[in-house]
């Protein structure tokens, strides 16, 4: 298996006034291209820290993180980040929100990229809302816009930080399905962080279970179901078994 994203012996300490906190302890793992991997762990174990490290927003205290064999730089442009909330800018239209990253990187006059953005909007049923303001859209649609905003920058690796936690349960299942299918059809590699076991199970090919602080990878699971969408996977007869296995490893 070719290593696409690789954590090599990564530790991370962060400083507070009172003490130095050992957040991550010698983390070692790797994922392959086009994998959908999830990291689950008890709350406060440093999952979000891992995403920040992977995005290059933080630097590991020891060890290194490689993406396609190349060390991750500060604010690495190969990485797309999706947050817990959609963070769409209310004063911008959907279209203006989508090209925000392009504007920042001065690519908003590039015909090809704009065409790509247009295509994504059409493909994922948002084209008619192009000139609407975010508040006119439902929570699920907003999250889809947020994903497209990340995708137009054509990232090599997508990081998802509990992207559905702000949605109500019903919407959550649907958006989870949508996002999964978008990511799969755009052939992206994704790393999801969540504390929701069933969410991780229904989306991932691979799950890493973290221990509590200082976090290490306690267990690594390869998941395979017959169904090919999160909703169908949830109905699989093995779903419960996996769930139980992860749950036991978490507590």
């Amino acid at each position: 298996m070719e290593k696409f994203l690789q954590y090599k012996n990564v530790s991370y300490f962060y400083q507070t006034k009172e003490s130095e906190i050992h957040a991550l302890n010698k983390i070692d793992f790797s994922i392959a291209e086009k994998d959908f991997a999830s990291i689950v762990g008890p709350s406060g174990c440093g999952k979000t820290t891992m995403l920040s490290l992977t995005a290059g927003l933080l630097e590991p205290s020891t060890g290194e993180i490689l993406l396609k064999g190349k060390k991750i730089e500060k604010n690495d442009s190969r990485i797309g980040y999706m947050f817990q909330r959609d963070h769409l800018f209310e004063w911008r239209t959907i279209w203006q929100n989508i090209i925000l990253g392009l504007e920042i990187q001065k690519k908003h006059k590039d015909e090809k990229t704009l065409c790509f953005a247009d295509q994504l909007l059409k493909k994922y049923d948002l084209y008619n809302f192009k000139n609407k303001k975010p508040r006119q859209l439902s929570g699920g649609m907003r999250q889809r816009v947020a994903l497209i905003r990340t995708l137009v920058l054509n990232p090599t690796l997508l990081l998802l930080d509990e992207p559905f936690s702000a949605l109500d349960f019903q919407t959550r299942l649907n958006v989870c399905d949508d996002v999964y299918q978008i990511i799969k059809s755009e052939k992206k590699t994704a790393l999801l962080v969540t504390h929701d076991i069933s969410e991780a199970l229904s989306m991932s090919d691979k799950i890493f279970i973290l221990s509590s602080r200082p976090a290490t990878v306690r267990k690594q699971l390869e998941i395979s179901f017959e169904g090919d969408t999160p909703l169908k996977k949830r109905e699989d007869k093995n779903f419960g078994k996996y769930f139980e296995l992860i749950w036991r490893n978490l507590s």
Binding site: Q84, F89, L100
Partner: peptide, 24 residues
């Protein structure tokens, strides 16, 4: 988090100011 979003898209401080802080 909005600032983090801007940073993850490589915005510099001027861009954060004009595209996020001021309109916000």
């Amino acid at each position: 988090d909005k600032i983090l979003l801007m940073k993850s898209m490589h915005a510099n401080k001027f861009q954060i100011l004009f595209k996020l802080i001021l309109p916000n």
